[in-house]
Amino acid sequence: MEGNKGGVTLALVIIVVIALGMTYILSAPTVEGITPTNFSHKYVASVHLGANANGWDFPTGPYNFDNGTVNPTFYYKVGTLVYYNVTEEDDLPHTLTIGYDGSATSTIGSSLIANPGLIKKSPTSYEFTSKSYTVVTESQLTQVPGHTASGKYPFQTAGVYTYWCTVHPTTMFGLIFVNATSAGTSVQFHQLNNTPVLQNGLDSLNSFNFKYQCTIPNTIATITGENFEGQ
């Protein structure tokens, strides 16, 4: 009876078990996909977007997607919680992902403001930013035109944000500017023709809701008292 590899086998099994277990636990989903629990928002807004591989579609009227603005730019005050309703317009997979590009004065921020076309030239520079968050995931969508999925995103930091679809990053993208100045209680809302529309927070919510027939997921009372984890 010569040497036996029993002990080596035991050691190898233990090493494999530790390696597998460690890797598995360390790859656990942690912060991504989670809205913060302690975010106290001042304003609420709701946006209805059409997911179309040719570009994000912003409807000009109720159920009127085809005549909308493509890839509109949005303006919000700091502290706005935005509810996103995404209606599928084609049979392709999409996501609605939002990433923080930096403050408006940072290099990337100012260059984006100066030339929004930049983001189209090098989509990967923002697509894989570590600070991105997918509001509406691929698995929430069904590739059935007309189906709507929802998500929410709180804008806590002033600066430039990009929203895009990770499946179609070269066509479906746009900018969001979050303004830090706190003059007035108004929400700077979506704008067309580069003219921000200034409205009172609740009024804007209601008028927007009325005007575009957007679905507000909860009543105001529920929203303000809501716990944001586990959406």
């Binding site: 989903p29 942690t30 923080y100 570590s130 600070k131």
Partner: peptide, 14 residues
């Protein structure tokens, strides 16, 4: 991490 969205790079959720 009181501020969210500082996701681990390269980790895809879902």
């Amino acid at each position: 991490l009181p501020v969210s969205y500082q996701a681990l790079p390269g980790v895809v959720a879902g």
